[in-house]
Design a protein around this nucleic acid. Structure first.
Lengths: 381, 381
DNA sequence: TAAAACTACCAAAGCGCTTTGGAAAGCGAG
DNA sequence: CTCGCTTTCCAAAGCGCTTTGGTAGTTTTA
């Protein structure tokens, strides 16, 4: 139809339209694109029958079905996604909305692995993945539009905050969703996949206190994010159990970059009474902490101990399975991605079922970065 | 329409359909979703006029346009993406296809930053981003389907290989695309954004030879990928200029993980005549190299020098602007993402224009990880 | 042997939008 | 007053698919 407008040069209106909506799609698209109508004509069947044959409905004889399948393959026919979606009312697409703070424009290093593994599950189920980076100021409107414009059947919520307003919003929108992480203080039940952050960090910290460390620095992620809040809670719990009063100077939180780890650890190590150990919220940050320790002329695992949370990133494995480098609480973010996707798939097929929640397991690994607290006695005196 | 099928319990066929295609979308979707027809009825105007008013066509009086806009805002009306796409023939979506090798299931750490910055450009232009992870065995079919099913208007090619078959394929499919990187040996012109890998690595290596290093290890990315091939070429060029015969034992390539950097560097350092310097293809790998150097009891920048390629990842900055940590050739992958997206946008609006190509600038930064070759004389003797 | 029940197909009505091809109203010029 | 030209709107035809509500023809059942 757009082609017509190109040929009718006489019509000013059409000419204008042509400029604004140049219909290259149809011009170029003609070449290899066969549609249902053409295919059914070629077969001497109705569109109904061809559609049913291809979609596996029973009202088609096996003989016909085979003929249709063969012809479709031969003609390289694939139904047009948009037309199909329009007709079915299902977008066959999952949205991943990554909140982008305007202040700290940083992509969570975990993101690639998470999305990759989730995407695998989607494609097994015939779903596509839509990725959107949304400034946090526009978040609410964005989710609403996503629903109204109908381009996704479900979404994954990344980076949940403490009392995240997105959750009630999505419930109200009746848009199936699964949260990667949790949101403390949200009262209505919702679907999530999370790791036991409190326990993990508590165990990590206790590992250090058991080794005699009493001045332990916490280098955490942004604490407005729920996971970081929980990790701090676990840290504090372990300190309390060991009767160590928390020192605010030894607890920092920010985006989990390598640089942050370096800066934070360097600053703490430069204090009069430096910490003898660090609990770190991510491998990347831990690498920065290591750098700080080494440039302070100290030896990691002897002078200063480090325990970290390890997301088991594909490009940043924590040593080998047998021989981890960092002492760490490890939980695979790829596995989390798969679980999130699986739960979302089932929520979409049965949106009225109760929310699915899943606590990811973690493993505590003792590596070479922790050892007994040095010269503890002197410091206490 | 699906609702009907749910109510007609008597009909076996409908019941079957209900199970296979549960139409939750329409059941739940009714709530907040107003369509063009309803909006136009509410306004007492035709759908045509409302559509034109909203899309900025001139055939609408300003008074009417305002009325329409106000009503649309009040009713929270947004046109259904799929219907619009079907009517216009444009998907308003860009596809990013990430090849996933079944052997080394790894997500390029660069990916998150790249996609984030590209996505920003897309959304400014009203485009969505579709992300697909495709096993390399199914690649060709996947691109073909993407075209035929019509769910994207253009795509970004990641991880181009030397004589990448995807490029002629995409040209033949007449699907607008831009390659992140280049593909040597592809004769037909195509759009790409790349960094001067050869020059960058040559400069990096020459920096080392000028410091007197003669045994230099290359720790490269997978050399079937074009960028890694080029980086090696630059490395070899610099060696040749310095009259240093390349030593195959000192050149390795693999996925650019931290672990690989550690393993490769450790192995080389354990040789009888260990290298005095390394050229590394990525920051992540360089971190592993540093770890290897330190666990060998050597001092980085004094005993062993390291130059790396630095993609300027958001979570892994190479120190500060004023004080880089690694001596490095830096080129921002986020900037590359933006350029790729921009070129793709323009190719889509004018697909017949000649391909857009862009060579990204890089900066060579001298950090603290390189120094004069130690005890060079002894080794030469 | 007639009625009931399948089986295997089809025509046509959407899905919600854009775009075409008018057509009615308004307006200045002849 | 009429003709031609805008301006402003509309009815209706798609976009390519799925799904409904049939209808013939063939078995099966009573």
């Amino acid at each position: 139809m757009q082609k017509v407008s190109c040929e009718k040069k006489g019509n000013l209106r059409s000419a204008t339209i042509k400029v604004e909506h140049f219909p290259f799609g149809s011009i170029l698209g003609v070449i290899g694109t066969m549609n249902l109508k053409q295919l059914s004509e070629r077969l001497g069947l109705s569109q109904t029958t061809v559609s049913r044959a291809l979609n596996g409905y029973p009202e088609v004889s096996e003989k016909t079905r085979k003929k249709v399948h063969d012809a479709a393959r031969a003609a390289n026919y694939k139904p047009n996604t948009r037309a199909r979606s329009l007709a079915t009312g299902r977008a066959m697409t999952i949205g991943h909305v990554i909140p982008v703070s305007t202040q700290h424009e940083m992509v969570n290093p975990v993101f690639g692995d998470f999305v990759a593994s989730a995407g695998e599950v989607y494609s097994r189920h015939g779903y596509d993945m839509l990725l959107s980076l949304v400034p946090d100021s526009e978040e609410e409107a964005f989710y609403r539009d996503l629903k109204i414009k109908g381009n996704v059947d479900g979404i994954v919520v990344h980076g949940p905050r403490m009392n995240d307003p997105r959750i009630p919003l999505l419930i109200q929108l009746e848009l199936p969703f699964v949260v990667h992480g949790r949101a403390s203080d949200v009262k209505t039940p919702f679907s999530w996949v999370d790791v036991a952050n409190v326990t993990a960090m508590q165990e990590a910290t206790t590992h250090l206190t058991a080794l005699g460390h009493r001045r332990i620095g916490l280098i955490n992620g942004l604490e407005q994010l729920d996971f970081a809040f929980r990790r701090r809670a676990g840290f504090l719990k372990a300190l309390a159990e060991a009767d160590i009063p928390p020192d605010p100077e030894l607890m920092v939180s920010a985006d989990m970059t390598e640089t942050f780890g370096y800066d934070a650890a360097s600053a703490m190590l430069a204090r009069d009474t430096p910490p003898t150990a660090f609990v770190v919220a991510s491998m990347i940050t831990a690498l920065g902490v290591r750098r700080a320790i080494e440039s302070a002329g100290l030896v990691l695992g002897r002078d200063v101990s480090v325990v970290t949370f390890d997301d088991d990133l594909s490009y940043l494995r924590n040593g080998t399975e047998a021989e981890p480098v960092f002492t760490a609480a490890r939980s695979s973010v790829r596995e989390a991605g798969r679980r999130v996707a699986a739960i979302l798939m089932s929520r979409i097929s049965d949106p009225l079922a109760p929310p699915g929640t899943e606590m990811m397991p973690y493993r505590f690994l003792t590596g070479a970065t922790t050892g007994p607290a040095p010269a503890q006695i002197a410091a206490e005196a």
